[in-house]
């Protein structure tokens, strides 16, 4: 199990695409893959890559943790400075590397730490989402949204819903991307 966790961390590092981001990988969301998720189809828990901005959603996940809101343990978080830093490649690479779902989250429009990063980002995410569906990757496996630092509860809700959606479909195996 330790091995599996390491592999996931390595995969996440590749997804992040640079060592600075790789250094910030954090299993903030739970105790690792050791806990089999309830109701997961297939024979392994689903693996989900979460790409979150440092200022809002990462802090929001922290708030959720501090508040001891129960969350599914399937998420691996990659912290990036801003959603504006998120290249669509990150999500596609995560799918290539075997992620069962990808969740991207950052500051609400208007709240970007760098004023306008998420304004550029949302245009890219919208296209990314449409293209991901075009590739035949079901809607339930990709989501992008906004969660602020104070929205621990919203973070819990987003993650719980997203993981439930991915679990319903089960692990992805032998796919084109």
């Amino acid at each position: 199990m330790a091995d599996q966790t390491t592999t996931q961390a390595n995969d996440a590092a590749v997804v992040a695409g640079d060592t600075a981001a790789a250094g910030t990988i954090d299993a903030a969301s739970g105790a690792g893959a050791a806990v089999a998720a309830d109701g997961a189809a297939g024979d392994r828990p689903v693996k989900i890559v979460g790409i979150v901005c440092n200022w809002c959603s990462y802090a929001g996940a922290d708030t959720a943790g501090t508040g001891r809101f129960k969350q599914p343990p399937n998420l691996r978080l990659i912290r990036v400075p801003c959603t504006g830093r998120v290249d669509p490649l990150f999500a596609l690479k995560a799918f290539e590397k075997g992620a069962d779902g990808v969740l991207i989250s950052g500051c609400h429009p208007g709240d970007c730490h760098y004023s306008e990063g998420n304004y550029y980002a949302r245009r890219k995410f919208e296209l990314l989402e449409r293209m991901i569906h075009h590739l035949g990757i079901p809607k339930e496996r990709f989501r992008w949204t906004w969660v602020s630092a104070s929205e621990g509860q919203r973070w819990q809700q987003v993650v719980t819903e997203f993981v439930a959606g991915v679990e319903k479909l089960g692990p992805r195996e032998g796919r084109a991307l």
Binding site: G17, D18, K93, E96
Partner: peptide, 23 residues
């Protein structure tokens, strides 16, 4: 270096490469 897109020539890697071109 870094190897962002795998050198391996498989459907997954090829499609990822083409998606990068597109984006």
């Amino acid at each position: 270096e870094p190897e962002l897109v795998a050198q391996k020539v498989g459907a997954k890697e090829n499609l990822l490469f083409q998606m990068i071109h597109m984006f």
